[in-house]
Design a protein around this nucleic acid. Structure first.
Length: 115
RNA sequence: CAGGCAGAACGGGAAAUCGCAGCAGGCAACCCCUGCUGAGGAAAGUCCGCCCUCCACAGGGCGCGGUGCUGGCUAACUGCCAGGCAGGGCAACCUGACGGCAUAGUGCAACAGAGAGGUGUAUUGCGUCGUGCAAGCGGCGUGAGGGUGAAACGGCGGUGUAAGAGACCACCAGUGCGUUUGGUGACAAGCGCAGCUAGGCAAACCCCACCGGGAGCAAGGUCAAGCAGGCGCACGGGGGCUGCCCGUCCCAUAGAAAGCGCCGGGUCGUCCGCACGAGGUGUCCGGUAACGGGCAUCCCAGAGAGAUGAUUUCCACUCCGGGCAACCGGAGAACAAAAGGCGGCUUAUAGGUUUGGCUGGAUA
RNA sequence: GGCCCUAUCGUCUAGAGGCCUAGGACGUCACCCUUUCAAGGUGAAGACUCGGGUUCGAAUCCCGAUAGGGUCA
C-alpha cells in the first residue's frame, strides 16, 4: 500500500471516531468519513487484546491486503479506519475479505452502490 | 531391547503470480523499468556486562549498591572453561550466593520444654541422709536414662562409684597449633602435640577483600518551520557526582546583552547517529578446555504507526476415515517477529535428527 | 525503544521472620429489632499473583516468571 494512502495522524483517527459513520461486526469495526482529498486513506488498529506482536502484525497485514485488493472498486475521497476485534483471530483470509466487503457495501462505499 | 544422563545442529523443502521495503544500475532528479537482498534461536524478558554518546574531564572521605572456594579465558560480566569441597543419584551425571558467628561487636530462636546460650538448668529418675508405723515429705549428691523440641553440650565399650559423669582409659569422630609430602592454588594425604567438645542463623545487622561517577540512540547532533514571554541570580548567588561534606570547574558580577535555573509558549518535520562488525564460513597451529593466533573467502535486514502478506502446484512429516495392499479423501504443523550494535544469563518452544557415557535384561 | 514502580478477602487497606489458622472498614449472607424498609445489634463466609531457594519456621528475605501502572521525544 502506498504511503500516501495511509492514515497516520492521531487527529485523523480522533476525527473519525467523533464524526464518522461506523459499522460493527464481531470481528471488526469500520469507521468512514469524507476527507478533502481526491483519494482514500486507510488506517488499521490492532489492539493488544488481539495477542502479541506476531498475531497483531498478521491481522494488520491481512487487512491491508484486503484493502489493497478492494481499493480500485471503492469510491474515492474518504478516510477509512478498521479496528480489529478479538473474534478475527485465526479466521481464514477469504472470510475476512468477505466481511470487509460487506461492511463497505453497507456504508455505501462500493462504486456500484450509487448515490 | 528397555530405561535414564549429558550435549550438538535443525525449526518443513522446491517453485509460480500479485503486493511491500532497501540497495545498485538504466536517467541530472521524481515517476517508471531491470537485477539483488529482506526476521530468530530465542529477534522475547530487560536480569548483567561492554562499545558508543552526552553531562565544563568525573579527585578524596562518609554513605549506598554489587560480587564472594581456587586457577584460567574474555573488551567486560552475576558469564564461560578446568579443578577443589559439600550434598543428591546404583551409575552416567546433577545441584551449590561455597569468605568470616573459636579474628571483633550486636541481634534472633514462636510453641513445647526443668533448661535455648549463661562453664546455664533439674520435672521425672538414680543414690544417700533426716523424719514418719506407712504412703510420703525435706536436705544433699548426680546429670547416665526417660520426656520436650528444628536444635539439649561427642559416640561405643570398659575402669570407677553410694549412685554417677571425659572423672579416667582404649578405639573412633570432630577442633586448634606445628610440621612433612603432592599441587601455581583451593585443597588432599600423613605425623606430632594440645585439649576434652568450645551449638545454629550473616539470602540478620555487620566485619574482611574486590568492583562501581551518572544517564541513556526518545543518548546526542543537524537543517527547516513555528511561537510570547515572565520570574530569580551579592556581604556571596546559580549550576556541574544523583544522598552528604571537602576539593575543583563553569557562568554572571549589579546599565543592557549574554549565561544559568524555574515557569509558560511553539513544533510533533528532514538528515546524520544507522549497518564492515570484539562479524560469518572453511582450514591449520597452540592450549585438557573456555579461548587465542595465522591464512583463505563472503558482505548477510535497516523501517519510522513501523517492510514478509495473498493465491496456487508438487514433495516430506503427523493424525483421522475407507481399503488386504498400492492408494484415495480430509485435517494439522510449536514458541514467537528486528528498531544502535555486540557478549552472556533467564524464560517459552510441536516435532523429528544426531553424538558420547550409564544401568538392567537377552544373545554370542 | 529506554528507564522506573506496584501486586494481601468483591473494593480500600494494616502487616517490617514465630503472637498470622493474616487484623480493620465498606460491601455480601443469616438471625435479632420493626407492621414493613432503612438505620442499629449479633454472627458467618471470604485474600497473601505464581514457581523455586535461604531458614527449624516466609505475606515478610533472595532469585525467576506473570499481570497492571507511570515516565522520557
Amino acid at each position: 500500500m502506498q504511503r500516501r494512502l495511509r492514515l497516520t495522524r492521531s487527529e485523523d483517527f480522533e476525527r473519525l471516531r467523533q464524526t464518522g459513520q461506523s459499522r460493527s461486526h464481531a470481528w471488526l469495526v469500520m469507521n468512514v468519513a469524507a476527507n478533502q482529498l481526491p483519494h482514500n486513506r486507510y488506517g488499521i488498529i490492532t489492539t493488544k487484546k488481539l495477542g502479541k506482536a506476531v498475531q497483531r502484525n498478521r491481522i494488520k497485514r491481512q487487512l491491508r491486503e484486503v484493502l489493497r485488493l478492494l481499493h480500485s472498486q471503492l469510491r474515492q475521497g474518504y478516510d477509512v479506519v478498521i479496528i480489529a476485534r478479538p473474534g478475527i483471530m485465526g479466521q481464514p483470509f477469504h472470510a475476512i475479505q468477505r466481511i470487509v466487503e460487506q461492511a463497505c457495501h453497507k456504508l455505501m462505499l462500493l462504486s456500484g452502490d450509487g448515490g
